[in-house]
Amino acid sequence: MKTNDVILQTTTKVVFFIIFLFSIHIFFAGHYTPGGGFVGGLLTTGALLLLLLAFDLKTVRKALPFNFLIVVALGLLIALLTSAWPMLFNEPFLTHAFGDYDLPFLGESSLHTATLFDLGVYLVVVGAGMTMIQTIGGDT
């Protein structure tokens, strides 16, 4: 008998975006409230995992044609380069810069280079999580 996943798949299409947006919110909120790159990355992986459960490995790979190992490497590279940037100005490694900026559309926002480091963490977590799931779940 052929099973029919129509309810699961339709719900997933809606819920996926809610989880994904929540993970982005958690990621950006990390400096002032609980959250940050690690939890944000895990939540994104969770959203992708839901896609994998509702559809199959091939479909998701087609929808997101990334090599997640490269995502890990990119994340590491971003984290290393943001930390190493101050070394050019003879400041200790990992020194961060921050300030308040008046951005168009967004208004006054306080920006901090630690966010870029967090972006690296986020990418590493998503990449590592997805690589693990795809390797264990797939044939290759």
Binding site: P92, F93, L94, H96
Partner: peptide, 8 residues
């Protein structure tokens, strides 16, 4: 001895 404290 050389030292550096990360993040200033």
């Amino acid at each position: 001895i050389q030292t550096v404290t990360l993040g200033s």
